[in-house]
């Protein structure tokens, strides 16, 4: 089990990130969704969602900075 290679865990994080990004836009292919639902746990998705929300807030703040500077 420990041998779950770094490559795989990197791929997992990327998969969560992708799921969250598509969620924020609100568009997702059915097959991808079923793949997500089968492989990701709710905890992963929730943490991913919170991280995504923080990134979202920070990026808007960055845009605001650029606009007012």
């Amino acid at each position: 089990m420990n041998k779950i290679t770094e490559k795989q865990s990197g791929a997992r994080i990327w998969q969560i990130a992708k799921a969250v990004m598509f969620a924020f836009m609100g568009v997702r292919k059915k097959s991808d969704l079923e793949h997500d639902a089968a492989t990701l746990t709710p905890a992963q998705v929730i943490i991913g969602g919170i991280v995504g929300a923080i990134i979202f807030v920070l990026s808007i703040m960055l845009v605001v900075r650029l606009v007012v500077s």
Partner: peptide, 19 residues
């Protein structure tokens, strides 16, 4: 149409509504 998109959009609206 786009059941999965609907689910994701609902979750997304809920999160965004807090900020």
């Amino acid at each position: 149409f786009g059941y999965s998109s609907m689910v994701y959009a609902t979750a997304s609206i809920a999160i965004l509504s807090c900020v």
